[in-house]
Design a protein around this nucleic acid. Structure first.
Length: 269
DNA sequence: TCCCAGGTGTCGC
DNA sequence: GCGACACATGGG
């Protein structure tokens, strides 16, 4: 297959694909095999270029967000030690533009699960509903039974994913319309879906809708914030963390969050 | 074995 | 509004 060479400055494919944003890319040789929407493909980084199948240039550039102005984004990061070392560690990582449904569904399954296990569930769901390697549509999941989802190792999450799939498939919830709302409204609308709380809603805003200010707070980020920005303070509430992060990290807080998250996870703290 | 994981829903105050 | 607790499952 003929490959295209896409200019990709300020980009690190390994970091981008291994930072817990997406869970369905597999290392193969010097690159990665995966799927963008329903298109399977192989991508490989060579220096400042990204190699991808000829004809997929626009799809690939958009998915990997090669248009995000990283130097400008970095200039908005606070200069504290935690952020500085996270930037040093993660330079070139980009916030992927994921298909919204796939992102929403995957993060509904992510609660109280390690990244390795989220990958297994994603794989099982992709294999189990006839669209492999693409993620099954809301309609396809809505027609399935809870037992079929439980067979994908979802546990109690099966019920939530099924209920959300039915709401989206029926048109009761319009994911495209939500994309036209401002951040707060979109967040509130997402929150109405079963299995979607503040953290998952922010993941969908950030990774699905490209709202780069959205700041998901999970156990890792909670730990990072408490250890670095609330030293010696006890009883720091979730609300306190939310208000602080929104004010402190600014317009590209989602990027800051992802860098802090990945660095903390790799350092094992 | 025991502990934890990119949390959410529910309940009681 | 906030804190406590249940919820499934696999990996370390």
């Amino acid at each position: 297959m003929k490959r295209a060479r896409i200019a990709a400055p300020d980009f690190n494919l390994d970091l981008t694909l291994n930072s817990g944003q997406v869970f369905h890319w597999d290392r193969k040789g010097n690159g990665y095999a995966g799927v963008i929407g329903d298109k399977p493909l192989f991508v490989e980084q060579q220096g400042d270029a990204l190699l991808a199948p000829a004809g997929s240039e626009n799809l690939v550039s958009r998915y990997f967000a090669l248009d995000h102005p990283l130097p400008e984004i970095y200039r908005t990061f606070p200069g504290d030690p935690a952020m500085t070392s996270a930037l040093e560690y993660c330079r070139g990582m980009r916030i992927i533009r994921q298909p919204v449904w796939e992102c929403l569904a995957t993060f509904i399954t992510s609660s109280m699960k390690q990244v390795a296990h989220i990958r297994q569930m994603s794989q099982a769901i992709r294999r189990g509903f006839g669209a492999f390697p693409a993620y099954p549509t809301p309609g396809r999941l809505a027609r399935a039974g809870e037992e079929q989802l439980r067979a994908c190792m979802l546990g109690y999450r099966a019920k939530n994913l099924l209920a959300t799939a039915r709401l989206v498939a029926s048109g009761a919830v319009d994911l495209v319309a939500i994309g036209k709302l401002d951040d707060d409204e979109a967040h509130a609308r997402l929150r109405r879906l079963p299995g979607v709380g503040p953290k998952v809603a922010n993941c969908v805003l950030l990774f699905g809708y490209g709202r780069l200010k959205a700041f998901p707070i999970d156990v890792w980020i909670g730990r990072v914030l408490r250890e670095n920005y609330f030293k010696r303070k006890r009883n720091v509430t979730e609300k306190r963390l939310r208000l602080f992060s929104a004010a402190y990290f600014g317009e590209f807080g989602g990027y800051a969050q992802q860098y802090l998250f990945h660095r903390a996870r790799m350092e094992g703290r």
